[in-house]
């Protein structure tokens, strides 16, 4: 008798834990032929609220770590991902990608993490300045993380897009709550498992699965979220995000898709702080 396969339950990732949705709802993810691959948690507004709380709690510790330490933690994510490469590829294939494309996307995603790991202790110098004020003061400006960031990740490429969305954000010291691709959520869940076994503190990245339709307004309107990053080109969605963002003067960053990697993506969720001090004795 052949061995019975153990099926995987795909859960969300909140505060370093893997809860099911509090709503106990799911949606069925099917392959091209219509076969159900998995039941995916249909995350609710309460799940999102819990994730924001976890992100806020994690923010102080994560933003307070040395840049060198953040760099190492992010690099470690890449290491852990490399070890699970085949799983990521398999899942992408399961969700409809060709093996070649799937392999390319996973490699690209890993390399992108390494790229930003390198930025973690460098972008500060790109965006800092010593300002030559015309008085007896020393005055300098440097970037600080905006705080808690909600992210509506791109639908495709689902895994590379997720990495493109969350890694620059946490490189800058923010914590975040990302909504995974609705049509290709498997990589996000596996990515959560990578995070759980990396050195990233729980709550820095929180991953919700579910639908844009249900959660977009929540992501944009929550009063304890300081910025929202939105991937997409849907004009109605963009308008809704920008309108809801006004409730607490949220920074709304709209990206049509994955662009060229660079420190500008980190800078999108940074603030500039300027400090003055007299010079004298």
């Amino acid at each position: 008798m052949p061995r019975l396969e153990v099926l995987k339950t795909y859960k969300m990732y909140i505060g370093g834990q893997f809860p099911r949705t509090e709503s106990a709802r799911y949606y069925a993810l099917a392959d091209k032929k219509g076969n159900v691959i998995a039941n995916i948690c249909l995350g609710s507004r309460k799940d999102f609220r819990n994730a924001v709380e976890a992100a806020r709690k994690a923010f102080g510790d994560w933003s307070g770590k040395t840049a060198y330490n953040r760099s190492q933690v992010i690099y470690r994510i890449a290491e852990m991902m490399e070890g699970r490469k085949s799983q990521f590829v398999n899942e992408l294939v399961l969700q409809g990608l060709t093996p070649a494309k799937a392999a390319a996307e996973v490699s690209q995603a890993i390399d992108l993490i390494v790229y930003y790991a390198g930025w973690a202790d460098k972008y500060q110098q790109i965006y800092s300045s010593v300002n030559p004020v015309a008085s007896k003061h020393f005055n300098f400006s440097f970037p600080e993380p905006t705080g808690v960031v909600s992210i509506i990740g791109p639908e495709t490429p689902s895994l590379l897009g997720l990495v493109d969305a969350v890694i620059p954000c946490i490189t800058g010291g923010n914590s975040c709550i990302v909504l995974a691709s609705e049509t290709q959520p498997l990589g996000a869940v596996t990515f959560a498992e990578v995070l759980a076994t990396s050195d990233l503190p729980g709550g820095v990245i929180n991953i919700i699965t579910g639908t844009r339709k249900e959660l977009l307004a929540q992501y944009a309107s929550h009063m304890d979220v300081n910025a929202i990053v939105y991937y997409g080109t849907d004009k109605a969605e963009i308008k809704a995000v920008q309108e809801n963002a006004t409730l607490n003067v949220k920074r709304a960053i709209i990206r049509s898709g994955i662009g060229t990697p660079g420190p500008e993506l980190i800078n999108d969720t940074l603030e500039t702080k300027t400090t003055w001090h007299p010079v004298g004795y």
């Binding site: 300002n131 004020v133 015309a134």
Partner: peptide, 8 residues
């Protein structure tokens, strides 16, 4: 304190 060179 304010200065044109200082981001605000």
């Amino acid at each position: 304190k304010f200065d044109p060179t200082s981001p605000f």
